[in-house]
Amino acid sequence: MTDAEQDRWLPFDGLSNARDVGGLPLDGGGHVRTGVLLRTESLESLSDSDVSRLTGLLGVRQVIDLRKDGEVISFGRGALYAAGVETHRLSFIPEEGRGLPEIDGDIDPVVHNYLAYLTDRAENVVAGVRLVAGLDSGATVVHCAAGKDRTGVLVALVLSAAGVRRDDVVADYALSATRIDDMFRRWSTVAGVPMPDAEELDRHRPRAEVMDGFLALLDERYGGPVAWLQANGLTDDELAHLRARLRDDAADDVPGETVSAEGRH
């Protein structure tokens, strides 16, 4: 893990997979602004100090929750919702099940699932991008259950639309693989069940080739992530606003709170 990757992690009592996408390099120069978009797993385990830090120092003004109704019923909306932070529910998975899109060839089943988000719930996917673009100040938190699949797809679309280089979009997605053990250790402790074995943990780790394949299929089928978003309702003005919010084209150094991985607690 590079120093830049370490510096993007945000330590919390009740989160293991939390980071700011700020600092990612833009194609042509500059970086994504810090303090605009944070990605995490679900928020039910936040401590009081976590909530204070998110709403105070980190300036969180809205939450985009990508979970299904059943997940929200089982685990709750989380402490930021209880603290009055505006929370938007945008499930990417139909409650009644789903049919995977038809794809020729030997395609990874996870890629099938990601494409199904776009075919089943295109309006919610675009709405998530629109919400990030529409917040004039402060930060957005986007999360699902583990902060890797549904969150990974939405964040990849936002970063692609902002102009982040493809290799860096893929690397950001894959970075969550380093936190799978921490998340399952916390969840297992809370539930009072044994920690999953190594094979089961590996099954949950994001793989770079999955996101690379997903974005390549968007290139092939739709002309790329931005073309897909625009074909499904994102306007030119909204795209421009998103880029204005996320892009720091003149930045050589990206300011903001940075915490090393060793500083997690």
Rank of each mutant, 00 (worst) to 15 (best):
G59D: 13
D248Q: 11
V170I: 14
L58K: 10
D13V: 03
M195H: 06
D27C: 07
A177F: 00
G22S: 00
R179K: 05
E257H: 15
L66F: 12
L229M: 12
F75C: 12
L80T: 10
D149K: 04
L54M: 12
S16C: 05
E5G: 06
S91F: 04
E209S: 08
V169A: 02
E200I: 09
E95A: 12
Y173I: 05
I93L: 15
G84N: 09
N17M: 04
I93N: 03
G138R: 09
E86K: 15
G233K: 10
G138N: 07
R205T: 01
Y81M: 08
H204N: 08
A139H: 02
T34C: 10
P206R: 02
E71K: 06
D120G: 08
L218F: 01
E96W: 10
G97L: 09
D149R: 05
D237A: 15
D69I: 03
D7E: 14
G35C: 12
T189N: 06
T40M: 10
E200D: 09
V190I: 13
H88I: 15
I180K: 03
E199L: 01
S16Y: 05
S176N: 02
E71P: 08
R33T: 04
L10G: 00
A231K: 11
N124S: 13
K68N: 10
G23N: 04
G84D: 09
V36E: 05
R89L: 14
V51T: 07
H112L: 10
